[in-house]
Design a protein around this nucleic acid. Structure first.
Lengths: 245, 245
DNA sequence: CGGCGTATTGAACCAGGTCAACGTGCGTGG
DNA sequence: CCACGCACGTTGACCTGGTTCAATACGCCG
């Protein structure tokens, strides 16, 4: 079934903390937030649904209220790279509105999700009326730039184990901690992890199996197969640091 | 000798096309440009001078009026990655003003250069008075994000020759074309090229030697040792495409 | 002209990719 | 509710691009 757009039944009824969680609108007064909310389109999207494709004309600024989205690029030869996993409260697909107007990547849900979005015209109006949004945008994109630069450094200087460890730690920062460990926020296959850390699913599988044996993490039960829980972030951090256990 | 700061002797006397070339201030009216100019600090910097270091507190928005700057990161183990080479008219070192206020990289001139910069306070004032600057900033940083994402994809999916070819083509886009070929805008050692394309200077040297033998480019004479001229961009583009010649 | 940073080139090694074959748990449909 | 099928995961054996180590040559600057 195709996902359907809808305004929230009542603007004020929609959880305001969803918006407060969006860094893009940080620091706006309640009145402005209400305005932002009123202009938004919200839709529920089942998992494994494409939200946009590489090369499509960019028409919206997207964000996620719940669920998870994989943003990935495919090169000419068909090889995939995962650029980023988007969790609740994160923005995505917004940069091309300000550059070449073409989505540079694919986006697809990896879990049942609720997406919120604004058309480009709406976003520009909002920015005009509330210039703070533009500065927030610079902050968000700037942080993302720095993160990708970090990954570029890792991938050219480090070994696979380091990158895999760091990828897990980055995901853990957005996961939920409990006594049993930190559960990652969305399901990730070995292939996902491989594409995130720049390796093959074979190597990723071997490495994860080794770490699971050491008790650093566990995958699978008691949730779906692709649910990963970290038990020893310190060990992973050490691995990410010096690449030697 | 330490580089010295100076206001241009006369604001209006300073070449206005320098500013017009800065995408950051694109679309501003002449009066606004004059304002920007009046607030700028300009200094001449000899080659091989550090402009800032990784980890330093970020205090300025920088741009280059002439010359060249290498922006690079060093990891814990001391390995270097070149994030970007900055040419005339390009902005750099501005992102951390909006994120964590710490330069994430080193910047050092690779040729005698003229730098123009604004303090953070000045930049914020300018943005407040001319909101278009904030949107230009989003565009510039967004484009850079997309470029780094491209490099990340290349480095994880492609072979060394492809990355080297692409690095050269990217640099050529900012070089000067003539009958003899396209001369790159600043001197680049084999090590620079290696750090740009994520390989070792040994492999870079071997590859460049092979390409020089095929007539795709030439290096060294008649300029300094590290001056590179491309003669067959089509061949390099083919190499960048499919990685097989 | 002497010395040092840069470049070239050869040889050996190895991390990780590739190819191949086999498990296994999840979801679906009967 | 159970059984079947398939997508996902695991594991082993082999292969190779590119790094590493090492040694020599070049060219620029003082």
């Amino acid at each position: 079934m195709p996902p359907t757009d809808a305004r929230p039944a009542s603007n004020t009824a929609w959880p305001p903390q969803s918006l407060a969680g969006l860094e893009l609108f940080r620091g706006l007064e309640p009145a402005a937030l209400a305005e932002v909310m009123a202009a938004a389109l919200v839709r529920a999207v089942p998992r494994h649904t494409p939200l946009f494709h590489q090369g499509d004309p960019a028409q919206h600024c997207h964000a996620l209220l719940s669920g998870g989205v994989r943003v990935s690029q495919t090169n000419a030869a068909g090889a995939q790279v995962a650029l980023r996993f988007i969790g609740a409260g994160e923005m995505f697909g917004t940069v091309p509105l300000f550059t070449d107007r073409l989505y540079p990547a694919d986006a697809e849900t990896v879990a049942d999700s609720v997406e919120i979005r604004w058309t480009e015209a709406t976003l520009r109006q909002l920015i005009t009326r509330h210039p703070a949004i533009a500065l927030n945008l610079v902050t968000v994109i700037g942080r993302r730039l720095m993160e990708v630069q970090d990954r570029l450094r890792e991938v050219t200087t480090g070994r696979v184990e380091q990158r895999l460890a760091r990828a897990l730690l980055r995901l853990a920062a957005r996961g939920t901690a409990s006594a049993a460990g930190t559960a990652l926020a969305f399901p990730l296959t070995r292939k996902d992890l491989a594409e995130l850390s720049g390796t093959t699913l074979h190597t990723a599988s071997r490495t994860l199996a080794a770490w699971e044996k050491r008790g650093w993490l566990s995958s699978g039960r008691p949730n779906g197969r692709a649910r990963i829980t970290l038990h020893d972030q310190a060990a992973l951090a050490a691995m990410a640091e010096d690449g030697r256990e």
